[in-house]
Amino acid sequence: MSEVRYTDQHEWIRLDGDEATVGITKYAAESLGDVVFVELPASGKAVAAGGEAAVVESVKAASDIYAPAGGTVTLANSALESAPSKVNEDPEGEGWFFKLKLSNKDEFAKLMDAAAYAKFLESL
């Protein structure tokens, strides 16, 4: 049973057992515009909660993607390197960025759930 949480920087994180998958939300993908390039973290890279983990670029914008929770990168979605459009087409599915082994699940638990994130979006 997987759970999804969200950050106020518009990343989503889905936890399956010990491993979490991270991507950017539909809202973020839409505001960036057509994604043309992603820079992914190497496997084994340690990231802190809120630390820079990846980069996403559209034609006129570039954003850092922060790790929603701390841990070690176990896998990056290398399919995005040749097909960055997946981030626009399926941001919360095939357009995921990287997988993390979390070092502290409490950090995950503190993030917004879907309802809270929806409310957060309304407040923007």
């Binding site: 057509d34 043309v36 390039f37 670029e57 559209s58 034609v59 006129k60 960055p84 459009s85």
Partner: peptide
């Protein structure tokens, strides 16, 4: 020229 496809140029 009409609008140019900047997405294709960058991808």
């Amino acid at each position: 020229r009409r609008r140019l496809d900047e997405t294709a140029a960058a991808r």
